[in-house]
Design a binder for these strands. Sequence first.
DNA 1: CGATTTTGACCCGCGC
DNA 2: GCGCGGGTCAAAATCG
Length: 269
Amino acid sequence: METLAKATDDRIISANKHEVGIVRAKLNQMSKENKILTEMVSIMQANYTALCTQFFNLVTEISPSQKRKNRTPEIDSFNQINGNPSEDCSFKRLREDPKPKISKVYVQTDPSDLSLVVRDGYGWRKYGQKITRYNPSPRAYYRCSFAPTCPVKKKVQRAAEDQSILVATYEGEHEHGQFSQGVGSMQSGSLPYFVSISSSCPTITLDLTQEGFWRDDGKFSRQNESTLPEFQPVLVEQIASVLTKDPNFRNALAVAISGRMSRHPSAQN
DNA sequence: CGATTTTGACCCGCGC
DNA sequence: GCGCGGGTCAAAATCG
């Protein structure tokens, strides 16, 4: 009887040892993958720096008079997000002027939806619309409904490269909370991808968890996965550049990846 | 009837 | 000074 119990204990101990071995192996593999990921991020960062230098060289080669003539939406967009390159070639120091905080939000919308509405939880009053030079789609101008108490303004225009992407440019910050127009910020017209790039502080919110969009009828529509790669290259570069610069993002990414690995051990094979 | 949108006119800064 | 382009104004139209 006693020998039977001892044999059972031995088997449990041996099983535990085996499990510890597996966990150790997994940990080793994870730390290896972590190293590889860190190296990849470093390479991306190096590439980004090289690209920045190249871009700056190209921009500074253009004379001031040529600058206006040859200006493109891409350069404008780059300058808005990174600050004026002629003032700081490293792009690391951002302008600290008293201008209102400007941030950009890119919203993937249903291509069939032609409205210039970005639901963000705030109330807006449209005060103008214009056709701009480099973009066939009109630009809409909105003021916060709390104006003149709240000076925040926003411009909404479809991306020239992809009409399904709405670009909302916010000027200033709300001095009041959101007041929902129903459910909240994630309501009709909201988005599968939500990206915010701020010019004054390179913070970014990237929500790729929603593979669809909220339609006006309140239903959540699944996004056709084949359309995902169409997320514009320029936009992707801008996002990648901000992400690779941010050590917090890299840490968060490492934590998220290791968390995912522990939840899906089969994926490690 | 008040709030909101539309849209042409106007203003302003910039480059030539 | 002129033209261009972006931003704003404000009267009319529309909506709830």
